[in-house]
Amino acid sequence: MVNFVAVIPVKGLIWCAQGETGLDMLMQYLLIMLLLLFVVSMFLSLTRRRAEAFAKAVRTVTVLRCENCDYKEEREFQVGDYVFKRIGECIKCKGGLYISMIYGVPEKPS
C-alpha cells in the first residue's frame, strides 16, 4: 500500500518529467486519477460536517372577508387565527368580519 501510494506516483512523476511520449501521457493520466482518488478520500474522511435542521421557510397569510360586502384584507398570520374565526367588524359596512382562508407562501431563500 505504501509502495502504491508513495513510490509509484513519485517514480511516475519523475518519468513524466523526463519524457514526452504517449506512454508518459497515459501514465500522467493514471497518476492524476490515483492522486485525485487519494485526496478526495482523505478530504471526505477528514471533513465531518455538523448537520443543522431548518424548517422550510413559509410566510403564512391570513385572509379576512366581510360577510355582507366584498371587503377583503390580507395580513400576516397571528397565533390564535383559524379559518371561520370571527375577527370583528368590517371597516366598510360594519358587517361581520371573519377569516376566510389561511395559506402558506414559500419564501425564496435570501
Binding site: F4, I8, G12, W15, G19, T21, G22, L23, M25, L26, M27, L30
Partner: peptide, 28 residues
C-alpha cells in the same frame, strides 16, 4: 496518431516502459 503515440518511440527505454505500463494496469 493517438495509437501511434502509445507505441514506444525511438530512443526510449522500451522494456522499462512496457513493464511499468503492464504493472500499473495489473495494479489498478
Amino acid at each position: 496518431s493517438g495509437i501511434w503515440q502509445l507505441l514506444p518511440q525511438p530512443g526510449g527505454d522500451y522494456a522499462t516502459y512496457l513493464i511499468t505500463y503492464v504493472l500499473t494496469f495489473v495494479l489498478f
